[in-house]
Design a protein around this nucleic acid. Structure first.
Length: 417
RNA sequence: GGAGAGGUGGCAGAGCGGUUGAAUGCGGCGGUCUUGAAAACCGUUAGGUCCUUCGGGAUCUCCCGAGUUCGAAUCUCGGCCUCUCCGCCA
């Protein structure tokens, strides 16, 4: 969330951010409440000053065994007054907080402003798009023929868009997970963590999924827990209320988890098969960094996600997200889109985001600068490195052979044997 | 599931109705000593909010919420979490 003081001093910037992110929040009411609150605070603190002084006198007199009755009666009306104002302040605090938690992060000045996805900018493209000298199949057909993939069985077990991988297909999933974890831990300096897949409400709030996206998540009926939509949630919340020492930053973590998404997406050609499912596997990168240089940390994060696709020899492009596609908590972000020559379109397989101190403020994650200076909020980042289902789709479709099989890229082969 | 203990500053850990926002230790920072470092010694070291004539002043915060009281870290009730023992179980 944003700092209330920042909002007070920069209402126009906030107004712009709301407009850019297409979020409605009553900023005027917020500012009025804030003003009102401060006036009441001044009043009540004046009263508390009096009360504290008299209470001190009562304490002293009691010690000496003197009568305190007169002082006690004189102060009770003050206490009543304090109670009354405190109650008002409490109510205002609630209203302020309701508005505040619904105000999105402010996009960085380098983020293109746009009403829709057309404002995203292609930053770079990599790889050679496959040309087939034969009639290529899509992943559903391949998956059925090879016995790797069954949406029907998944539908029977659970419901639609819960794919089942079988045999080599299941092996491919495991191979990809191991390949990605190895790459990030061995080559990119990430520490691997294995985390809960169910998280509580506070965690969902901490990373900013709540309160706005409650309907997009699977929630448990008897416990106030949610199935994670991304490992970002448990991994980032790992350090809630943490005070890092500067020399321990940046802290880099990688986790494999399944991701559960309820979001009722549209069906059809664009979203068929593995390109839109309710459960998929993902390897997620999370970084805690110092505020200085956090933009560079975002760039390196993107590069690390790109390395996965390069080694998998999947053509991709990097999109700088415009304000319309940047997440609620995001300050700046890139998407990686992988190419499939069969569907002839790009598939989003990674989203890398810098959150500034927006999440850290919600989770109270700080660091103490060397030299004993005052503690500051860290900046948080995360990025998929990468999401599996769509990557599997691209691999199967791009690497199919004329004889109906699939010949996987070199980097993956050791994991498939 | 049963029984018990406990949640206090960066950390460990006292305090259990009245100058206690909090002893003490560790860690951090500054200094003395030293060729330099270590050790030793001295000093210093939470955060939020509001006001400010920018010197500072005030107020709140000891897991969260409600209550008792003139006054709560300290007492009462509710919640959350952690630990120990027993039971059950992959």
């Amino acid at each position: 969330m944003l700092d209330l003081k920042f909002i007070r001093e920069n209402p126009d910037k906030v107004r712009q951010a709301l407009k850019a992110k297409l979020v409605i929040a009553d900023l005027d009411l917020l500012l009025r409440l804030d003003k009102n609150r401060r006036a009441l605070l001044q009043e009540v603190e004046e009263q508390k000053k009096i009360r504290n002084r008299v209470n001190g006198q009562i304490g002293l007199k009691k010690k000496k065994g003197e009568s305190v009755q007169e002082l006690v009666t004189s102060i009770s009306t003050v206490s009543q007054k304090i109670d009354e104002i405190d109650r008002k302040v409490g109510d205002i605090d609630k209203s302020i907080s309701t508005i505040l938690i619904n105000i999105p992060n402010i996009p960085h000045e380098t983020v293109p402003v746009s009403k829709d996805s057309s404002g995203n900018q292609v930053v770079r493209e990599w790889g050679q798009k496959r040309q087939f000298g034969f009639e290529a199949s899509d992943h559903l057909e391949l998956g059925r023929r090879l016995g790797w993939l069954s949406f029907e069985r998944g539908a029977a077990v659970t419901g639609s868009a819960f794919p089942v991988f079988q045999g080599r297909g299941a092996r491919l999933v495991r191979a990809l997970i191991n390949f990605m974890l190895d790459l990030h831990t061995k080559k990119h300096g990430y520490e691997e963590v294995s985390v809960p897949h169910l998280v509580n409400r506070q965690s969902m709030f901490g990373t900013g999924q709540l309160p706005r996206l409650e309907g997009d998540m699977y929630a448990l009926k008897d416990d106030d827990y949610f199935l994670i939509p991304t490992a970002e949630v448990p991994v980032t919340n790992l350090f809630r209320d943490e005070m890092f020492e500067e020399k321990l930053l940046p802290r880099k973590l990688v986790a494999y988890t399944p991701c559960y998404r309820r979001e009722a997406g549209s069906y059809g050609k664009e979203t068929k098969g593995l390109s839109r499912v309710h459960q998929f596997d993902k390897v997620e990168l999370v970084k805690f960094v110092k505020p200085e240089g956090s933009l560079e940390e975002l760039e390196s994060l993107v590069k690390e996600a790109e390395a996965v696709l390069q080694l998998l020899e999947i053509p991709y492009r990097v999109l700088l997200l415009s304000t319309a596609d940047l997440s609620f908590a995001g300050m700046k972000g890139y998407d990686l889109e992988a190419w499939s020559s069969v569907s002839g379109r790009w598939h989003e397989v990674s989203s890398c985001t810098l959150f500034g101190d927006f999440q850290a403020r919600r989770m109270n994650i700080r660091y103490r600068p060397a030299g004993g200076a005052k503690s500051e909020y860290v900046h948080t980042l995360n990025g998929s490195g990468v999401a599996l289902a769509r990557t599997v789709l691209c691999l199967m479709e791009n690497f199919q052979t004329a004889s109906g099989g699939v010949e996987f890229p070199k980097a993956l082969r050791p994991y498939l044997d």
